[in-house]
Design a protein around this nucleic acid. Structure first.
Lengths: 209, 209, 209, 209
DNA sequence: CGATAAACGAGACGGTACGTCGCGTCTTCTG
DNA sequence: CAGAAGACGCGACGTACCGTCTCGTTTATCG
């Protein structure tokens, strides 16, 4: 992702890079990142945890920040499997069904990981793309499916701005976690749905909300 | 803001702190911050730019992050003067009237400055409060005024969650700038108002939108 | 010695270098050098032993080798005090009187220390001068005194090449220790005097030798 | 020399070692050694220069130092051929006849090469032996022949310490080159003969010296 | 003659030391 | 005494080298 391969048809002499080292190192980097935070993380820590030499790391990534970003990019959990998505018959039902403790924890973890890297994104546009594809897009894709189902059902108008609506939730959560340092609770997520997302989608929330 | 004064009644012996140095240093810090980013910024850079010694900086702020945060906190432009706020008679009119190129640029600059500090917030709750008070609250307060006017006018229902609504805009903008690295355009801000904020407030947007 | 001072009349602002650190560091360097040898010695070891930061070392010496050489240059023991020199009345007596176990051990130690640095001398002529002044010259000066006394006594001809004669002993010892890795014994030193130095000086050695 | 063959009766399967690589590598090692000095030399440099892989080097020599020592050991020029030795009829004539510009240059080159390895000798006694056999002994052997001739001629007493006398010259030269970093000149070598070696041998030097 | 075992060039690997740079503190001198 | 200048202890960074291991290829001997 971050290392650009310029070679065309080099005869590939010499020992090949062991691809399994990549994953070992990325795993180690994630572990250390979660435990120590970006600033507290050390390249030597990662190398030691992965039982690798520092040169092996720097042969693959040009800097600590590139390594960390790649590690985060590989976080994409498998929650986006369309077969396991809930299908409750209503947009609200689907959105609420996605609120599960494991998902909350996973999202909060991702966000805290991201927090150390926001400053890196400004200098590396392509890294921002990678982070987006890895962290944002999977969750947005789930929402996109829900909205498309709702449009097919006639539950929401077909001319709504789906791309904007699917980002409202992530945006509100990110803002609360990163900027306001508030925890993510089920109530907060449900109020986001009922008070912002559904109205924006033109859906009347249930009277109890 | 961040520097806590523990002294009570020190006889203030010797030379007194030159208060003008504070502003010089903060200005220098902002300059360097904007030019080099948080990670690229050095305390020595700031001291040299302000023609100050490092000890003078550390006598006033306990760390680089505190200094930077204070510098950012001083960015709060005077736009929140209630007398200069637009009053167009409609909620949408007020919100749209706040979209002015200088404000956009200023906000975008603040956010990019903030980007380097997101990681600091996680470790320093009080810094998070300070950042919130300095950067988020002023803009939120303006929105709060608009919403309260709209409630007084009967334009929106009095039971809406004002505190949540006033943060939708900042959240969407932050997310787009920091996470997605997208520029802030007038169209984007207006679509936020018409497609998210106003529906969430229960106000029917104009048919042209 | 190794750090060349280019300044002329700089106003000497800021904190001064603590000269006592120089000695602490040199002492630590010598300790580590003797314990671990040149190749086994680490800059971090020296810094840790001296309770100094690596930057403090590198502020004073441009490299590990320069530091080590300076440390060795400071080895000059005070054995060359003219007042404590033996004066036996004969050249041979004086030379033999200098053969004392402590001096042998000290000389052997110096040589072993030097062994790690011979390669450094080739690249740094001025360092070679320093090493010579510190390690060779003191011993040579003692010999010079003995020969001048002998000349004054009429024991040796006044036209002998004193500068060459005073180096025969050090040269033979160095060669045996460094090249041949042989130990320095009293017998070896005495045979040097009787079989090489005295004949070269035109003095008939005693019949027992 | 340095590589010890432990095999007994291995069926010598597979491809055999190409003996020509040995010399290529040693030549490359010497080139790099002379150009860069011992510390500046890298194993990769040698391998690249010899168009060999590092494994090929390490299959033949256990370490960089062993390789270098072997390379130096192969420097032994053919000057020790007894048939080509001068035979002038006097000890001084023979010794002086060995002073030829090519020999001076060769000796100086050897010594500078040796300078990088002195530190290795302390840790590797067997390497010291090898170095001695390769670099010292050939020259000493020539001197030994000269002295034995002189004894046979009755020019010197038969009870002199030949083994010590033959090392005076090498010792003085080594000391001047390695320690004092002085060049080797014809005058220096002749004065060694006339002022040190011949007196030590009990031979009266010519009155002109 | 084909299989097999080892040597070969190339270069990735784990490890370790180097020399640099940044942070936050301490020291010296000047106003 | 505050303040500018800068040295200090500490520790992470990114580089370079050593000696080993792994590729794919070449070469010699064995079955």
């Amino acid at each position: 992702m971050t290392q650009i391969d310029l070679v065309e048809d080099r005869p590939k002499l010499g020992r090949k890079r062991d691809p399994s080292r990549d994953q070992d190192i990325l795993d180690a980097a994630l572990d250390v990142l979660v435990e120590s935070g970006y600033d507290g993380m050390t390249v030597d820590m990662v190398a030691a945890r992965a039982k690798a030499g520092k040169a092996t790391l720097y042969r693959r990534w040009p800097s600590k920040s590139a390594l960390v970003l790649d590690a985060v990019a590989c976080l994409k959990a498998g929650e986006l499997d369309p077969d396991t998505l809930p299908d409750t018959g209503t947009l609200r039902g689907d959105l609420v069904a996605m609120i599960r403790p494991p998902a909350i924890r996973d999202g909060e973890r991702k966000l805290r990981i991201m927090s150390g890297m926001v400053s890196l994104l400004a200098d590396n546009p392509e890294l921002a793309d990678a982070a987006h594809a890895a962290l944002v897009e999977p969750r947005a894709a789930v929402n996109r499916i829900f909205f498309e189902r709702a449009i097919a059902r006639g539950e929401v108008a077909p001319d709504i701005d789906v791309e904007k609506l699917i980002l409202i939730g992530p945006a509100l959560v990110s803002y609360n976690v990163l900027m306001l340092q508030r925890p993510v609770t089920r109530e907060f997520l449900i109020s986001n749905i009922d008070k912002v997302i559904l109205p924006a989608a033109g859906v009347r929330p249930p009277p109890t909300a």
